[in-house]
Simulated scan of single mutants.
Amino acid sequence: TKFNDLKKVLFLEEAENMSSYDSYKEFNRRVLSPSIKSINEKTDLKVEYSYKAVRGKGSASGVLTFTILSIGGMVLLENIKSNDSKYEESSERIKQQIGYDMIVDTNNVVYVDQIVRIMCDIDMADDVKSAIKINSISVPISQLQAKFKSLTGEEVLFVCKKYRAESKKVKNVRSYITSCLYNAAENLKLDKLKPKGSFDIDDFDDFVSNFHALDDYE
C-alpha cells in the first residue's frame, strides 16, 4: 500500500491539520503505530507492518506492507518459512490423507493449515524416542506419528471446531492442538454418542440467536 493512497483511504487529506500527516514519521507516531497496537491487543489478529521509502521522492511516496501473522493464535501457513523439500513432501502427503481440498474453506483455512503444519513437524521428527506430554502423560514421538497417520478429515474438522470454541482459554496453541489431534478419534466417537437432546456451547449460541429472533414477531 502506498503511503499517499492510505492517507486518502483514511480521509486524512481532508483533515484540517492534514499537513501534520505529510511525513511518514509523524503519521506512524500519531495514527499507524497506535492503530496496529490496538488491533494486536484487542482483537484475535496479530499484525505487523514495514515501511520502505522511495529514494529521492520523499517519505510520502513510500510503500507500506502489512502482514497478518496469526488469527486466533493460529499462524498463517504462508508466513512459515521452510526450504526443506522433505517438509513439502510431508505436507502434501498429509493433505491427501485428510482430504484437504474437501474440508478447507475460507472460514477454517487458517486453522486447518496450522494443524497440517503441526502434523508435519511430528511427521518429520528425527528423535522418535523423545516424548511429548499429552494429558500430563509422556507420549513417545513414534506413537504420535503412528496416531497422526490415521487421522481423517472429519477428525481434523472436529479439532478445528473444538479449538475455535475454546481459543480464548488456550495459552499454548501448539500443545493444545497436538493433544486434541492425539485424542481426536476417541473424542469424536464420544461426541457422536451424545444423546440427541444433549446441549453444548454451539447449541446454546443457536438457541440464544433464535430466542432473540422471536422479538421480530411481537
Rank of each mutant, 00 (worst) to 15 (best):
Lys2Ser: 12
Leu6Trp: 00
Leu6Asn: 00
Lys7Asn: 10
Leu12Val: 00
Glu13Ala: 01
Glu14Thr: 08
Tyr21Ser: 01
Ser23Glu: 02
Tyr24His: 10
Arg30Phe: 03
Ser33Glu: 14
Pro34Cys: 03
Ser38Gln: 14
Ile39Trp: 08
Ile39Leu: 14
Glu41Val: 01
Lys42Asp: 14
Thr43Asp: 07
Thr43Lys: 12
Tyr49Gln: 05
Gly56Tyr: 08
Gly58Asn: 04
Ser59Cys: 03
Ser61Gln: 10
Val63Ala: 04
Met74Lys: 04
Met74Pro: 03
Val75His: 05
Leu76Thr: 09
Leu76Ser: 09
Leu77Lys: 13
Leu77His: 15
Ser82Glu: 11
Ser82Met: 04
Ser85Arg: 06
Tyr87Ser: 01
Tyr87Gly: 00
Glu88Lys: 15
Glu88Ser: 14
Ser91Gly: 01
Ser91Pro: 00
Ile94Asn: 07
Lys95Ala: 04
Gln96Asp: 11
Gln97His: 05
Gln97Val: 12
Ile98Gly: 04
Gly99Trp: 06
Asp101Arg: 07
Met102Phe: 14
Ile103Glu: 07
Val104Leu: 03
Val104Pro: 01
Asp105Val: 04
Asp105Phe: 02
Asn108Cys: 10
Asn108Asp: 13
Asn108Phe: 10
Val110Ser: 10
Asp113Arg: 09
Ile122Gly: 05
Ile122Ala: 15
Asp123Gly: 03
Asp123Gln: 11
Met124Gln: 14
Ala125Val: 01
Asp126Ser: 15
Asp126Asn: 15
Val128Ala: 13
Lys129Leu: 05
Ser130Leu: 14
Ile132Asp: 02
Asn135Thr: 05
Ile137Ser: 13
Ile137Leu: 05
Ile137Arg: 13
Pro140Arg: 06
Pro140Met: 02
Pro140Gln: 06
Leu144Arg: 04
Ala146Thr: 08
Ala146Asp: 15
Phe148Asn: 07
Lys149His: 12
Lys149Asn: 15
Leu151Gly: 02
Leu151Met: 12
Glu155Cys: 02
Glu155Asp: 09
Val156Ser: 09
Lys162Leu: 06
Glu166Cys: 11
Lys169His: 13
Val170Lys: 04
Lys171Tyr: 12
Ile177Ser: 00
Thr178Tyr: 05
Thr178Gln: 08
Ser179Asn: 10
Cys180Leu: 06
Asn183Ala: 14
Asn183Gly: 01
Ala185Leu: 06
Lys189Glu: 13
Leu190Ser: 09
Asp191Ser: 10
Lys192Pro: 06
Leu193Thr: 09
Lys194Ile: 04
Lys196His: 05
Asp200Ala: 11
Asp203Ala: 08
Asp203Phe: 08
Phe204Gln: 15
Asp205Asn: 15
Asp206Tyr: 08
Asp206Ala: 14
His212Gly: 13
His212Ile: 10
Leu214Phe: 13
Asp215Arg: 14
Tyr217Asp: 09
